[in-house]
């Protein structure tokens, strides 16, 4: 069983918290410590952003994180090395890489899948690569026992939901709003209703993210979803902290979110 499936099984109905940070932000040397801080705060799964020069689906907060990481020259190979380093002290918390297709394509799908599996990665979400375009990559990932994670949006038609259900493993990521990461136009009731409707096709756990900024929203959405994904709010915390205090502040924030969805 994959680490992701094992994680949801062990939760047995309790809600998972999936924090997101960008690898290499604010500095490559800090990422592994921040990942451990997320786990200490109560993270069930970690989404680790792979920086990209043109993050089309991201709002300003994660754009800036990407730019900070790229200023230090963080590559996909560097991100895999960070995961391998994290795995030396943590063998259980699943790690999902989230990013854009081009760096993965450049690395080579088969080589990437093999290296990612060896590093201890569990799932991969390429934002700009929906299932119809992901054939070769998804096959390479599955061949190495990794889960291809896909997005479902408020605009996704029922036909497409069914198609995504056929290709996804691990969990699916429901995008709570039409917009970029960190946006502020979340409609809690609409999201809850949509997630309930998705269950008709989706048997995998459903995580929900984009625009979840506080414990209250996290709590409200956790009644409908299996996992709550929080990114921009955490990246903001890193941005506001000093390198020395970031880990502690992140841990406190994650703990408050985790407490809210228990």
């Amino acid at each position: 069983m994959s680490r992701i499936s094992a994680c949801f099984e062990q939760l047995s109905g309790a809600k998972a918290l999936i924090p997101f940070i960008t690898a290499g932000d604010p500095h490559p040397s800090r990422t592994v410590a921040l990942m451990h801080a997320l786990v200490d705060g109560g993270a069930d799964i970690i989404e680790l952003g792979v920086p990209f020069s043109d993050p089309m689906a991201d709002g300003p907060v994660i754009q800036r994180a990407s730019e900070r990481a790229l200023a230090h020259g963080v590559s996909l190979a560097d991100v895999l090395a960070m995961v391998a380093e994290f795995r030396k002290d943590n063998g259980t918390t699943p790690v999902v890489l989230m990013g854009y297709l081009n760096p993965v394509m450049r690395y080579g799908f088969a080589r990437f899948a093999a290296d990612a599996a060896r590093a201890g990665v569990d799932g991969v979400l390429t934002v700009d690569c929906p299932p119809h375009a992901a054939g070769e990559l998804a096959a390479a990932l599955k061949g190495e026992g990794l889960d291809p994670v896909f997005l479902i949006a408020p605009t996704t038609t029922e036909d497409r939901v069914a198609e995504i259900a056929r290709h996804a493993t691990g969990y699916v990521y429901y995008v709570s709003l039409n917009g970029v990461t960190g946006a502020g136009n979340l409609d809690i009731d609409a999201v809850a209703g949509k997630i309930a409707a998705l269950r008709q096709h989706i048997t995998l756990p459903i995580g929900v993210g984009f625009g979840i900024r506080d414990a209250e929203t996290a709590r409200a959405l956790s009644t409908a979803a299996d996992a709550i994904i929080v990114g921009s709010r955490l990246v903001q915390e890193i941005e506001a902290a000093t390198q020395e205090t970031a880990a502690e502040q992140l841990k406190i924030l994650v703990a408050s979110l985790k407490a809210a969805i228990r």
Binding site: D128, A133, L151, I152, A153, T155, T157, R160, I164
Partner: peptide, 22 residues
């Protein structure tokens, strides 16, 4: 039909835009 000119083209966007492009 899938939007390819040889090996170039296609549709590589976030899921939110898929319905609009269709």
């Amino acid at each position: 039909a899938r939007g390819y000119f040889g090996e170039h083209g296609g549709v590589f966007v976030a899921e939110t835009l898929m319905a609009a492009l269709d």
